[in-house]
């Protein structure tokens, strides 16, 4: 029942950080092509994938080492956007270039297909792909073209659906759609019916396992409608979404769960007994078939030595959970 996974990003190895700095400097000076940079990324991704596998994770990513702008990187490759000034990514000391609409949004070519294929070649374990969800992406962008956020979200959902389809065609069997804004925003900027339409379009575009991943907050009753969507897995942040267990009690999701159980933004290691109790509470409340266990977000905002410690802790906790329920 329990599977060990990660949400997405991971710290870049220190040698990669330094080599990229040097390579960028060289590129500026001599206009060198990206070949050298490309080989650096491949080496970095191989190293990170090996680290995931040595921590016995079941479902992994490529650590999203190539991304410069977290979820917003996707927009760079769509028609209808330009990238503008840096803006804070939620409550992190972490920034992204804000994409601004310049016209109607449309999907041109696969964005992450090559990355997926490469990761698949390097990995023994299953690779999942991570895409931004339509509501979150609409919220992260600056809209100067569409009538409102809902209209922007609708076109974004078509682009995300096309990308998901391309990833599935390339062989991806698990696609995660990240929707932190759904649980982070105090008040949604679009009606839930509109959000559900957009999510439905995204979800129904593929037959792969789909996961709606929400982090940096918890679900409240006003979001209960989302449980009617056909996502196979719903992600709950049990670190920063304290209300999630109450939500599960009240609305009993009939879904597989993805549970964020370790704090991805602090280095302190959690007590296994506390974490296990929380997981078992969620399991008892919802009786899921599969439970994916992960930190509550990617681990790139903690130093790598601690990221490994957290993954090992996660792996031990899941092993204990498996033993307890055997």
């Amino acid at each position: 029942m329990f599977q060990k996974t990660i949400v997405g990003n991971y710290p870049r190895p220190s040698w990669l950080r330094e080599s990229l700095l040097k390579a960028e400097g060289k590129q500026k000076k001599a206009g060198l092509a990206g070949k050298e940079v490309e080989s650096l990324y491949v080496r970095g991704i191989a190293e990170v994938i090996a680290e995931f596998e040595s921590c016995n994770l079941d479902l992994i990513t490529d650590g999203q080492l190539r991304l410069t702008d977290a979820l917003a990187s996707f927009c760079e490759n769509l028609e209808g956007f330009k990238m503008t000034g840096l803006i804070r990514y939620y409550d992190n000391n972490f920034y992204y270039r804000q994409p601004e609409t310049t016209g109607k949004i449309s999907w041109k070519n696969p964005v992450f297909e090559a990355d997926f294929k490469q990761a698949k070649k390097l990995a023994k374990k299953k690779i999942k792909c991570v895409l931004p969800g339509p509501y979150t992406l609409a919220r992260l962008c600056k809209n100067t073209f569409y009538k409102d956020t809902s209209d922007l979200m609708w076109d974004l959902s078509s682009a995300i659906a096309s990308e998901a389809k391309a990833l599935e065609n390339a062989g991806c069997k698990f696609i995660q759609f990240d929707e932190p804004s759904l649980v982070y925003d105090r008040k949604l900027e679009c009606g839930l019916d509109k959000i559900m339409d957009a999510l439905k379009k995204v979800e129904s575009s593929v037959s792969a396992i789909t996961c709606l991943q929400a982090y940096f907050g918890g679900f409240n009753g006003s979001l209960a409608g989302l449980l009617d969507l056909k996502f196979d897995v719903i992600g709950f942040d049990l670190v920063e979404g304290k209300e999630n267990l109450n939500f599960m009690q009240e609305y009993t999701p009939k879904k597989d769960l993805s549970l964020g159980i370790l704090d991805s933004r602090n280095i302190r290691l959690e007590k296994p007994s506390v974490v296990k109790a929380r997981v078992m509470q969620a399991v008892k409340l919802t009786s899921p078939k599969n439970v994916y266990i992960n930190p509550n977000w990617g681990l790139e905002l903690i130093p790598r030595e601690y990221a490994v410690k957290k993954l090992k802790l996660l792996s031990n906790i899941v092993d204990e959970l498996k033993e307890d329920s055997a």
């Binding site: 710290p11 870049r12 220190s14 950080r17 702008d69 972490f94 992204y96 790139e300």
Partner: peptide, 17 residues
Amino acid sequence: EGDWIRIWGNNYYRKPI
């Protein structure tokens, strides 16, 4: 002193502990 944590792109700071 902490290790380097990414702020954006290839920019990092040493997040204290």
